[in-house]
Each structure stands twice: as structure tokens, then as C-alpha cells.
Simulated assay, not measured.
Amino acid sequence: MFFYLKKGFSIIISLLYIFVNYNFYNSIFHEYTNNKIFHITTQLGIIEIVFWILLLYSVFELKNKSIEKRKNNKSITEEIKEKEIKKDKIDLIICSVIFLVTLICVNISRVILQSSPYMNDVVSTVSLYLLFFGGTRVLFIFSSIIFIFVAISRRNVFLILISALNIAVSIMIWLDFDTNITAAMRIIISIFAIIYYVFSENSKKDKQITKNKKIKQGELV
């Protein structure tokens, strides 16, 4: 039950991600007030963070195929296998945290720079601000590159496509081209995410819980 609720919620957030990116796309071609741009970029930032939290959370449910292959190797002990699985999860947590922190920073910079011409001028003149915004964008590229390796290790086509597009988006943001093109690319990312969620399967753990519940219900009857 939880799996389907989570899947449904993830799809809804992905649809909202399309909507907020569409709004951001339109803002490039319209002379909106700074206040409206602030609201558009803030909404985009919030939904984008939630979108990626859900997507990264779903990755934890996927198995690392390279580790799975090594599991079949009889020369490797169970202890080593368990250590590899734990290490993989720890690495994934670290990568996810770095990615989300840099994503938050990128979104904060987007809100500030897009909605305030004054702050845009300040950032371009004050070296400390320039270092912060530039540094977080570089880290965002780095974390996006790491994510593609994670996607490859999970052997999921949609995750690989999402991560590849996200690398392109992160590079364009670093080049200060966070415009209609990046908005369109993020819309494509969200479409791939919806397909990914639709075709995602219930994890073994959730399947076992569901199975146990059915057994208990059968016993009660």
C-alpha cells in the first residue's frame, strides 16, 4: 500500500515539476515583475528539491547490479558481501546529501539572481558572493556526474537518461544559462521520471510485508 502511495505522490510531484518549469519557461518571454519572478523561482526551487528527494529515495530501493554480480561469486564471503552493500548505501547517502545541498544552493542563487537585478549586480561585483554561487554550481556539476555513475550501477535506463540530462542542465547553470532551454530539459527529466515511477517495481522488502499481511488476513478469516 505504501509503495503505491509513494509512487502516486512521486508522479504528482513530477507533474508539478513540469508545471513550475513551464512557468519558469514562460517567464523568460514575459516582462514579469520582480515579485512574480520571485514566486515563480521559489515555487520551482521547492518542487525541484522535493522532486529530487523522492527520486533519490527511490534509488535506495534499487540494487547495485555490480554488487549483485559479485554475490554470485562463491569465493567472496557473506561478510564481504554485506560490507559492500553497506558501503554502497553509505556512498549513496553521501552522494545524495551533497547533491541536495548543492541543489538547494543553486535554487537559492536562482531566486536571488532572477528576481533581483540589484542582487545580480552585487553578486557580479563582490568576490565572496561570486565564489559562493560559482562554487556551489561547480559542486552541483560534480554531484550530477556522480549521480550518473549511481544510475549506471543500477542499470536503469530512465535514471541514466535523467542523470545525463541533469549534467547538461548543471553545466548550463554554471555557464549562467539557466533559461528556457534548461526549463525544457527539466520538463523532459520529469517526463522520464514519471515513466520511471510507472514502471518501477515493488521492492522485495515491501513485497514480503504485503505477503505477510495477506497471510495474516487469511489466518484471521
Rank of each mutant, 00 (worst) to 15 (best):
I104E: 01
Y129M: 13
I160K: 12
I94G: 00
E201K: 13
M119V: 07
T136A: 13
V169R: 01
V198N: 08
C105Q: 11
N156P: 07
I167M: 13
I98P: 00
Y118H: 13
K216D: 10
N212S: 12
K213P: 00
I188A: 08
V111H: 03
S153D: 12
L113W: 09
I152P: 05
F142K: 11
K213W: 02
M119K: 05
K216H: 07
I152E: 07
C95Y: 11
K87I: 07
S127P: 03
L175V: 08
I194W: 10
F99K: 01
Y196T: 02
R137L: 05
K214W: 01
D176H: 11
V198F: 14
I187L: 05
M172I: 07
L92P: 01
A164C: 12
S115F: 02
K213G: 05
W174D: 05
L139M: 15
I98Y: 05
G134H: 09
V169L: 04
S203N: 14
I141L: 10
S115P: 02
I104C: 08
L131W: 06
F133Y: 14
S127M: 13
N107A: 03
M185L: 15
I94N: 02
S200Y: 07
Y129E: 06
S153V: 01
E201Q: 06
Y118T: 14
D178I: 05
N120D: 13
I191N: 03
F132C: 06
T125S: 15
V150W: 05
L175N: 08
L100N: 02
D176I: 08
M119L: 14
M119P: 03
